[in-house]
Design a binder for these strands. Structure first.
Lengths: 120, 120
DNA sequence: GGGAAAAGTGCGTTATTGATACTAGGTATT
DNA sequence: AATACCTAGTATCAATAACGCACTTTTCCC
């Protein structure tokens, strides 16, 4: 007999809320863009389709979790610069593999999805 | 002068919907659990806290995208077995790094979040 | 003074998650 | 034979999160 299948991934593991907060399309893309410190609107311009609202929220979450730092620049119209922390850098590397995987496989996935949708 | 910051990540890239559909806590955990073909309730038992509703939806999405296969077993009470496809295997490997990163860093992240919340 | 860029905030709607309950066929229990 | 439980789901409703769009405020340029 096979051994009893036991619970492996516990509901109260601290990784659960972290996965919920950090693992998202926009978190991924923001980190990808932050190869060097960049200002709010620079990031926004490079991430086609993101709104200010969503970018602000995403940056707050990343800041709260220690992935990016937020620094106010005393420039003429005041500026805010976001930069990766070391922990943010390490997450960016992991996200990079995921992004690369997605780009590598996206046409296969699209084809598979269309076939699935055809047969109901 | 630095070169003009151009749009890097286009909104109409096919990776966008795929990231939205596949990148989630539950997709990750389901793939982690599927080291071998498993039945619906076995998966459910091993993923503490997932509801039938969410597990069904997650498995459907993974099936639609070609990450898992669904096979009906002609057993006494009918059974359904889910298994990774080769593409699912490759995604599981990428997800594994992300999961490992999260577990490695979760206590640091919790501490950082608590400090952030304290200073408003 | 008009217009634009900076970095947001507010509000209202939609979409997704989640909890809870229910279904239906079969089996083991008493 | 009735009860209870396992199988793999649906259905329904409430709570939460995401998103779109408009608005703000300060400063600069013309």
């Amino acid at each position: 007999m096979a051994p009893e299948p036991l619970t492996i991934y516990r509901a109260d593991c601290p990784s659960r809320p972290i996965l919920d907060q950090l693992i998202s399309k926009w978190s991924m893309l923001v980190l990808q863009v932050l190869d060097e410190p960049k200002r709010f609107n620079t990031i926004k311009r490079q991430l086609d389709g993101i709104t200010q609202r969503v970018l602000t929220e995403t940056l707050r979450k990343l800041e709260r979790s220690g992935m990016v730092t937020r620094r106010v620049l005393e420039t003429s119209p005041i500026g805010v610069e976001y930069a990766l922390t070391p922990m943010g850098q390490s997450l960016k590397m992991v996200f990079s593999s995921l992004y690369d995987w997605t780009v590598t496989n996206m046409s296969d996935i699209e084809t598979t999805q269309q076939a699935y949708d055809l047969q109901r």
